[in-house]
């Protein structure tokens, strides 16, 4: 057992990853830092027609049209920051860019596999589809956002 634990530890030190933690309402969520392109302040968006309300619109990221997802709306958590003080975390999803609108960016945590666990079955909760894992570090419980699921509903709707 002890040996196995040591081996696990050795593996974990190699597989530890960094996560960017941000806040939506009072809850903490994170994404893998490697998926993060940049963090920027809020800029006014242009609404898209006939899309779910969490797809807040598009904004200009130095000439590229960047869609913005209001993570509070997506997860149905009330945001507590005035809109112009919120933060946009620009992430890569596959080869597309997406802006996640959050209340604030907190810090970066490093976590290995032992800190990571699957989200308990919360079928029916709005969070169920888009947050699939939890990271527990120093007594904090941080939801890992499943980036590939963030826009899933909108795509099927428009297909």
């Amino acid at each position: 057992m002890r040996d196995a634990a040591a081996r696990n530890q050795a593996q974990e030190t190699q597989e530890r990853r960094d996560f960017l933690v941000f806040r939506v309402g009072a809850q903490e969520f994170c994404v893998d830092v490697l998926a993060v392109k940049e963090v920027r302040g809020w800029t006014p968006t242009t609404s898209l027609p006939k899309v779910p309300s969490f797809l807040r619109g598009v904004t200009n990221l130095r000439g590229t049209v960047l869609p913005i997802v209001d993570l509070g709306d997506r997860l149905q958590i009330a945001c507590d920051t005035a809109i112009e003080d919120r933060i946009v975390v620009v992430v890569w999803i596959d080869r597309k860019l997406l802006g996640l609108l959050v209340d604030a960016v907190c810090d970066i945590v490093t976590a290995g596999d032992k800190n990571l666990q699957a989200m308990p079955d919360l079928t029916g909760e709005p969070i169920h589809t888009s947050v699939t894992s939890l990271i527990t570090v120093d007594g904090r419980v941080i939801g890992l956002v499943a980036l590939d699921q963030i826009l899933a509903d909108t795509r099927s709707q428009n297909a």
Binding site: T43, P44, T45, T46, L48, P49, K50, V51, G57, V58, T59, N60, G63, T64, V65, L66, P67, K96, L97, L98, L151, T154, R155, N158
Partner: peptide, 27 residues
């Protein structure tokens, strides 16, 4: 003309986007 589909999926009724002088996106 700026493609919407580079980062977004196809939106019914919208062909593409552009960026106006004030930096805002117009569809």
């Amino acid at each position: 003309i700026k493609s919407l589909e580079i980062n977004c999926h196809r939106i019914a009724g919208i062909a593409a986007a552009t960026i106006l002088g004030n930096g805002l996106v117009a569809l």
